[in-house]
Design a protein around this nucleic acid. Structure first.
Lengths: 246, 246
DNA sequence: CGCCCTGTTGAGTTTTATCAATATTGGTGG
DNA sequence: CCACCAATATTGATAAAACTCAACAGGGCG
């Protein structure tokens, strides 16, 4: 399987062979196999490296004192997490896996070297981090304004498109390897309500769900239900003017 | 009045005279006076500059098709807004003032020059942008997990501490120059509910509100009601190892 | 003085949460 | 292959939180 980060960055700009090779090396160096629900880094710790998800799903999350938990961001294959730079002393949240996952730790000097010597890659990594921020903003909008149905369908659209961008959707389907309780933590809803909302979407034939496979018979229909505008994902090769011609 | 950005960055690290002068120059060049509720940049436009709020309040926001609006982030004096870098082609949200405001436009080359020649300043600007991301994450937690009372008191704590960090709080009070409808758009609540929640906080003597002045008789008490942990604001001079010795 | 904007109040409704029970599923060992 | 287990999903009933609508109050300003 091709490196999902490379695949993702090429949604922004075409990389040179050297760029790709640098990324391949970085992805191969300190690779960890993790089980489901393991922490990658915990609130209070000092970030040492950037983590690249090679396979599996992970998330940023934060616990409140009374046990409530909010999943702040979802990390899919090809996503980078951890502080993009190392200015902040301590993590103010945790990052953990949701499923079994393979994660490469990219050490600080490696990132800095890329930033110094590979301008095209630097731009691409900037893009990936800015898209992450845009996704965060969209989650804010969802949590603040959308009701349960819209929120859930919006999230499913997002997941599907993000997975498709790294080649992990096949036709109208993709994996959804998380429990309803985890969707609930991401959506700020109760598990019971997520369950009922999923049923509602199924009844409306907007989605199919068999085991851990999500099917979206008509993406436009689901987008409609969610008021989903994909522009915030910035997937349309906005950096094509930087394309490498190899 | 001292430059609020300088004031804020010195919460991270002590700047050199030169650093400060560069910032002063950047803040003085293209200064705009804006009325309340004016857009600074609109969704779909291309970001041309970074905007520094010198006085007044502004916000990032996004409209849904049916008129609902979510305020995604609040900008107070000393805050930078607009895309920190210019990789994304089009704004996926808008930025507008809430009150009359004075805003400096810092052009792209200026930012790039700072990034190239002023390492300490670069670190400080990184810090400011990462804190912005941390605030965004905390808003996600609030909208997802906290009820109206917690959410509102949490936001008031945040506003108070952020204003204090730029010298805009006096003792136990600060400005709160926005309408309840605007708090509602930021908190994902209805105006009516914000009104009632404010009354509840007043009745509990957790806040006082006279005109556009907010009083917090006991910050610890309000923090307690909000489950507010100030760590995410990273205000404790985490970059002190970079201090200039002038 | 009167108007407009913002804040406040009350009543009734909708959405979502909570609690507790029951069903389903996938995996495991016999 | 089957029986069993734990984890997850589903269901029903009830309660709480927040929303909507509509009316009214108060204050600042031309």
């Amino acid at each position: 399987m091709p490196n999902p980060l490379i695949r993702k960055l090429e949604r922004f700009t075409r990389l040179s062979r050297d760029d790709r090779q640098v990324l391949e090396q970085a992805s191969a160096e300190a690779v960890r196999q993790l089980g489901p629900r393991e922490d990658i880094i915990r609130e209070g710790e000092a970030p040492q490296a950037v983590n690249l998800i090679l396979s599996g799903w992970a998330c940023r999350y934060k616990h409140l004192e009374d046990g409530r938990r909010q999943i702040i961001a979802l990390f899919l294959p090809g996503d980078l997490c951890g502080n993009p730079v190392f200015v902040l002393r301590e993590m103010d949240h945790s990052i953990g896996t949701l499923t079994t996952a393979v994660v490469a730790q990219i050490a600080r000097p490696r990132i800095e070297a890329m930033m110094l010597h590979r301008p095209r890659l630097t731009q691409a990594l900037w893009w990936e981090s800015l898209v992450g921020a845009a996704v965060q903003r969209e989650w804010t909008v969802s949590l603040g304004q959308r009701d349960a149905t819209e929120r859930l369908s919006h999230l499913l659209c997002e997941i599907f498109l993000r997975l498709r961008a790294v080649g992990l959707a096949e036709g109208d389907r993709c994996d959804l390897p998380v429990r309803q309780a985890e969707l609930a933590d991401a959506l700020g809803l109760s598990t019971v309500h997520v369950n009922r909302t999923l049923q509602e979407l199924r009844a409306a034939k907007l989605i199919g769900l068999k085991g851990k496979t999500l099917t979206i018979p008509s993406l436009p229909a689901l987008q409609d239900a969610a008021q989903f505008n994909p522009h915030y994902l910035h997937l349309d090769r906005e950096g094509r003017h930087l394309d490498a011609n190899e």
